[in-house]
Simulated scan of single mutants.
Amino acid sequence: MARPRKFVERDVVSSAGEVFAVHGLAATTLDDLVQATGLGKQSLYNAFGGKRELFLRALSEDREEAARAVSEALQHGDASPLERIRGHLLRMAIEFSRSDNRVSLTTRALVESTGESDQLAAVTKAGIEELAGIYAHCLELARASGDLPADANVSSLAMYFVAITRGMELLGRSGVGRGALTAVALDALRVFHA
């Protein structure tokens, strides 16, 4: 008879995700995961199938959280859709400039992805497309309200904002300060006035 599990999978995945976000998939060792999760090597293999599978599981959860956060930022309040995007970018400038900020697992996966047709590339691409879809919805609202020209390329603009936020995240992680990130956020919005 199999022993019952004495851990919460979501907690283990979250702890592993934090380690992967700091070190990346390639540099994270099984010993790192054992230390972070409190599980033994065999338990990790039995529950998740291996390091790569655990990374993909953590990446999926990080992706869901990122999509939820962006969606909430762009869907609430009485502000216009473009003002919501502006507020979101400015909040990201503050968050990404904090000294304790770490790169998200989604951004770490983007950096590590070889672009080959493997599961990591597919999950990463799906995460980017999901974020772009959330921006696109907000931009569609801006176009419908007349804040964007009728011929604006919403898909391209949505991907632009994904690129801006992921880039700001990496810049912040490398030590670029709040002032510079705020300037990037504000300059990114000038695309609407061009």
Rank of each mutant, 00 (worst) to 15 (best):
R63S: 13
R63W: 03
E65V: 07
A66M: 12
A67S: 06
R68H: 11
R68I: 12
R68F: 12
A69T: 13
A69I: 10
A69N: 13
A69M: 10
A69R: 13
A69F: 09
V70S: 11
V70A: 11
V70G: 07
V70D: 06
S71H: 05
S71N: 08
E72V: 05
A73S: 09
A73P: 01
A73N: 02
A73C: 00
L74A: 01
L74C: 04
L74H: 01
L74D: 00
Q75S: 14
Q75W: 06
Q75H: 10
Q75P: 04
H76I: 12
H76L: 12
H76N: 14
H76F: 12
G77P: 05
G77Y: 07
D78L: 14
D78Q: 15
D78S: 15
D78W: 12
S80A: 15
S80E: 14
S80C: 12
S80M: 10
S80N: 12
P81Y: 05
P81N: 06
P81G: 06
P81S: 08
P81T: 05
L82N: 02
L82G: 02
R84C: 06
R84N: 07
I85M: 02
I85N: 02
I85H: 00
I85C: 01
R86A: 02
R86F: 00
R86K: 04
R86G: 00
G87T: 03
G87V: 03
G87M: 04
G87W: 03
H88C: 03
H88Q: 02
L89W: 00
L89R: 05
L89K: 04
L89Y: 04
L90H: 05
L90I: 09
L90T: 06
L90W: 03
R91H: 12
M92I: 13
M92Y: 09
M92R: 15
M92K: 12
M92E: 13
A93K: 04
A93R: 01
A93M: 05
I94T: 15
I94K: 13
I94W: 12
I94R: 13
E95G: 10
F96P: 04
F96C: 08
F96W: 07
S97N: 01
S97A: 06
R98D: 15
R98K: 14
R98Q: 14
R98F: 09
R98W: 09
S99Q: 08
D100E: 15
D100F: 12
N101G: 06
N101Y: 10
N101S: 09
R102S: 13
R102F: 11
R102I: 13
R102L: 15
V103H: 04
V103C: 06
S104T: 10
S104A: 08
S104D: 00
S104Y: 01
S104V: 02
S104W: 02
L105W: 01
L105T: 01
T106R: 03
T106V: 12
T106S: 07
T106C: 07
T106E: 03
T107V: 05
T107F: 00
T107Y: 00
T107W: 04
T107E: 01
R108C: 00
R108Y: 03
A109L: 00
A109Y: 02
L110W: 07
V111C: 10
V111H: 10
V111W: 09
V111R: 10
V111T: 11
V111N: 08
V111I: 14
V111F: 09
E112C: 07
E112Q: 09
E112P: 06
E112H: 06
S113V: 05
S113W: 06
